[in-house]
Simulated scan of single mutants.
Amino acid sequence: MKDFTFYNPARIIFGKNSLDMLGDNMHHLGKRVLLHYGMASIKKHGIYEDVMNRLNALNIEVYELGGVKANPEFDLVAQGIKMCKEHAIEGILAVGGGSVIDSAKGIAAGVLYAGNIEEAYVDNLNIDDALPIGCVLTIPAAGSESSASSVVSVNNATLKRSIKGTCLIPRFAIINPAYFVSLRSDQAAAGISDIFAHLLERYFTNTEHVDYTDRLLEATMRTIIHYGPYVVNHLDDIDAWSEIGFAGTLAHNGLLGSGREEDWASHRIEHELTALYHIPHGAGLAIVFPAWMKHVYPENKDRFVQFAQRVFDVDYATHEVDKIIEEGISRYERFLKSMFLPTRLHEAGILNDDSDIMIERMYYKRSESFGNFKKLYAEDVYKIFKYAK
């Protein structure tokens, strides 16, 4: 196990009555606040009205910026930065899913950043200061409600890049699983795939002696395997959503990666699918991750055998290592398909071979390789795309 320091100041306020605690936590954001949200969903389902009633009761001066897309774009971030500077905004309240929260983080960082915050995204920089952020979560998926990173499409939406820093961790996150029942089944499935991928990025490591966090990750994965397909078909089950929602937060708040080297190659590859084809992030991960597994598993077969046996109960009786691994990957794919997710590019309607474009963008202003479980060079990514066809 590696030496580590774990720090996460996000106050998680979880439950059916959690919005009642908004007033007790708004002091973190000040009296002049930017309310940031997505499209029409929060107004359609009454969440906007509930939030505004509480903010008005607190005599908070509210400025609004809606319109965040499923894959947030820098143009709206720039608009938010301008608004915050013009109105001396003290804090940002994000109401939505990971895209809204990531966009809010970009705004919060950009207001105080001395340089060009879009270039900071392009260069994947660490950020030292940002306006305080709070959030009301409406989609469990990205884990941005307690993570230290923000992912936004920049460079005229041709690159999907990130910034990071503990200053980007929200001061509080209100998580009401009752808000999740309004999601469509495809939104639920994509979110669940994203949560599972966050666990996999941490699980596939070459760091030794991390059995405790291995087992925490495995328990969380098994919880998602149990509840994921169920909730996609029973969207009104608040108790099931509670399990998914809490798992989503823990999957990406940094705790489960403590003391271990993480990978994140699959996310970098998937970001190019999202940027080019505008498919849901979770759907893209459902395509990329199995393909990545098929390419890299010879690097550390023991880790993949453990995954197959502990997570998907592949029979210990067989002694053919490759068969155990292949069955584990196959069961992961079947889990994704049980939620009607694509596991191949053509299943997502992607028929063109644009791998050259995506790979060029993937390495733009970056080193010649990425990933930690196995260093991926351009020729490796070509092979992964072939597995994904």
Rank of each mutant, 00 (worst) to 15 (best):
M1D: 08
F4K: 00
R11V: 09
F14D: 15
G15L: 07
K16P: 12
S18P: 11
D20M: 05
L29M: 04
L35K: 02
A40Y: 01
I42F: 10
I47Q: 07
N59K: 12
V62G: 00
V62A: 00
P72R: 08
D75I: 12
D75K: 13
C84K: 09
E86M: 12
I89M: 04
E90F: 06
L93G: 05
I101E: 11
G106R: 06
I107D: 09
G110N: 03
V111N: 11
V111E: 11
L112Y: 01
N116D: 15
E119M: 09
V122P: 00
D123W: 02
N126G: 09
N126M: 08
L137A: 14
T138G: 11
S146Q: 07
A148C: 08
V152C: 01
N155H: 03
I163F: 00
G165R: 07
C167M: 08
C167H: 09
L168N: 06
P177S: 05
Y179Q: 05
F180P: 01
R184V: 05
D186A: 05
Q187P: 14
A188V: 03
A190D: 00
D194E: 06
I195C: 13
A197M: 12
F204W: 04
E208H: 09
V210Q: 10
D211I: 07
Y212L: 15
R215L: 14
L216F: 10
T220D: 09
H226E: 15
H234L: 01
I238H: 01
D239E: 15
N253G: 10
G254I: 00
R260M: 11
H267T: 01
H271P: 14
H271G: 02
H271C: 05
L285D: 13
I287T: 09
F289Q: 14
A291L: 03
A291G: 07
W292P: 09
Y297P: 05
D302R: 08
V314N: 12
D315S: 14
Y316Q: 07
A317V: 01
E327P: 03
S330N: 13
R331G: 06
Y332G: 00
F335M: 10
E347L: 07
G349F: 08
I350D: 06
N352R: 08
I357E: 15
M362N: 13
K365S: 08
S367K: 10
N372W: 02
N372L: 04
K375S: 06
K375M: 07
K386H: 12
